[in-house]
């Protein structure tokens, strides 16, 4: 795993990782404490080739409850992972999957209009897609093993193998 970053590079990457993590975490917690929150509205807005699946999910109360829980806890856990640098790789991959689903549910493609207001103007690239791209950077330029809980895991493993070799 790569560790030859300069100080600025490492700092920039960790700040990016943490910022995305906080965004995920806070989105998740906000939904967790809001008794009225449901993903139904978002799913209902769905356009594009995955609309059918998303609408089916929204229409089925059991599926919707499951999706809601998955969403909330997915956001919280991915957020914690990215922020604290624990299981960073797994958290990053799950974060990418979630963002991909969010993007595909309401893609910013030409011709699609949504009733959920956007705070800017987007064509193809929206903030979800940019966050998704940023997570790819986090995935391929990992930092959890340098600054994060993964560092402890790595060291514990290394120590284990050293002790084994002593034995």
């Amino acid at each position: 795993m790569r560790s030859d970053y300069s100080g600025f590079q490492l700092t920039a990457l960790v700040v990016l990782r943490f910022a995305i993590g906080w965004h995920f975490f806070f989105e998740g917690v906000s939904k967790l404490v809001d008794p009225y929150w449901t993903s139904a509205g978002y799913l209902e807005e769905s356009q594009g080739f995955m609309t059918g699946l998303f609408l089916d999910l929204a229409a089925n109360p059991a599926a919707l409850a499951f999706v809601d829980q998955l969403n909330v806890w997915g956001l919280i856990l991915v957020g914690l992972g990215l922020m604290l640098g624990g299981l960073t790789r797994t958290a990053t991959v799950f974060g990418i999957i979630m963002l991909l689903l969010y993007y595909l549910a309401l893609p910013a493609w030409p011709g699609f209009e949504y009733t959920i207001p956007a705070e800017g103007e987007y064509l193809i690239v929206n903030k979800t897609l940019i966050e998704l791209c940023a997570l790819f950077v986090i995935l391929f330029l990992p930092t959890g093993h340098l600054v994060g809980l993964d560092r402890l895991v790595r060291l514990a493993r290394a120590r284990g193998s050293v002790q084994e070799s002593y034995a």
């Binding site: 970053y5 300069s6 100080g7 490492l10 990782r17 340098l146 060291l155 290394a158």
Partner: peptide, 24 residues
């Protein structure tokens, strides 16, 4: 506000530190 300042010493990781610095 701009979070996550790693308490790192610059340069943060000498290229070969994986074996030396992190060794128990």
């Amino acid at each position: 506000p701009p979070p996550a300042e790693p308490p790192a010493e610059a340069p943060v990781e000498p290229p070969a530190d994986a074996s030396s610095a992190d060794k128990p």
